[in-house]
Computed example of a mutant assay.
Amino acid sequence: MHRTLPRRRLFGQWTALAALGVLSILPVAAQAQAYPSRPIRLVVPFTPGGSTDILARAIGLELGKAWNASVVVENVPGAGGAIGADKVAKAAPDGYTLLMGHIGTLAVNPSLYPKLPYNPLKDFAPVAWVANVPNVLVLHPSTKAANMKEFVAYAKANPGRLNYGSGGNGSAANLATEYLKMRTGISLVHIPYRGTAPAVNDLVAGQTQVLFTGVPAVIAQVRSGQLKALAVSGKARVEALPEVPTVNEALDLKDFEADQWYGVVAPAGTPADIVAKLNQAINAALNSAELKKRLGAEGAVANPTTPEAFGKYIASEIERWKPVITSGRVKVD
């Protein structure tokens, strides 16, 4: 026979359950409130010296100052950024291991690697969209072209004679150059490197002739005259190189755009309070006059926004670069 519990006893059970529910969320709330209580590891999935590394160290410095905490930048290169990204994807979701992701690791790799060990949309929690960085087409000074039109004409007249470097097969520089080839009909030979820095070094040494990479990685060499800049990839000129036209300007195009972009993600499952705390701190740094000036001087444009907006952007970029990879027949080793 079914018996109804006394009202007092039933109320007591619900009270106990409610108390258990409150207690269950207390550790998460306490964790977020105390965060960070130990060093944060910010993984850069590329070699030191490239745009990803430069931006990661700038953000890490600002976070360290804001929280009086230690932010350690760790370079974990390999497989177009997939090795470092996978390491973060499989890390504990506690906010102490983060990834400075970029267009390659978060948007391009899914179309390049048939067995990519991580899923950018499922294995990461978007934290903060840090910046957009236009690519700049730079040449060794010995290359016979004073502007983009001369460069395109020379490359067409001398197919296969110009070598272009990149940070590796499937890297942002590789894709930007393949997109330029597709749009202009020029012929260039790809020389992949294990990272941006060695590609820059060989260009300066004259081992290659062309590089289409992020402004921060080559701006010092452009300013010193070691490299000559012909055009930038964005919709507008770059503050750091105001005399350099866009590809659209230089070639009378309207819709050429091949910027790199960068943002911080955490392992999926990282508590929302910690994600919010990181987002607020990174955005505060990006909105500071000091960091804006520093990024502008490097050719980067700060882009503070919400984790949700950054997540939607990642999804849209995955779809945008699929046809470029297919038409350029971009393959990884």
Rank of each mutant, 00 (worst) to 15 (best):
V88D: 00
K87D: 04
R9F: 01
A205R: 10
N158D: 07
D202T: 08
L23F: 12
Y113T: 06
P114S: 03
V22D: 11
A284S: 15
K331C: 03
P216Y: 02
K87M: 07
S37Q: 12
K65L: 02
A231M: 10
A66N: 10
G78R: 06
I219G: 08
T208A: 08
G234K: 08
A197Q: 14
V232L: 11
V127N: 10
S316D: 09
V76A: 11
G84M: 00
S187D: 09
V301M: 14
Y164H: 13
A16V: 05
L175V: 14
T213Q: 12
K235Q: 15
K277W: 06
A82I: 00
L175S: 14
A268T: 01
G269D: 01
H190T: 07
A18H: 08
I54M: 11
A300N: 12
A29H: 14
K254N: 15
F310C: 07
V247S: 10
F11G: 05
I314C: 04
I274W: 08
R294I: 06
T270F: 01
L121C: 05
K254Q: 12
G195A: 03
R320K: 15
G101M: 03
M100C: 03
G234I: 09
Y35S: 05
A18T: 09
G328S: 09
V200N: 12
V215D: 09
P141Y: 02
A16G: 04
S142F: 00
M148R: 07
D259L: 07
V238H: 11
K181P: 06
R8S: 04
V232M: 13
A89F: 02
T105H: 08
A82Q: 00
F151S: 07
A240Y: 06
Q209C: 04
V22A: 12
A276I: 00
K149Q: 14
S316G: 11
A58S: 11
E257K: 14
L23E: 04
A128G: 02
E150Q: 10
P304H: 10
N68C: 09
L42P: 09
V265T: 03
A32G: 11
Y179D: 14
P39D: 01
N174P: 11
G160C: 05
T306V: 10
A91D: 02
I40L: 06
A276V: 00
V152K: 04
M100E: 02
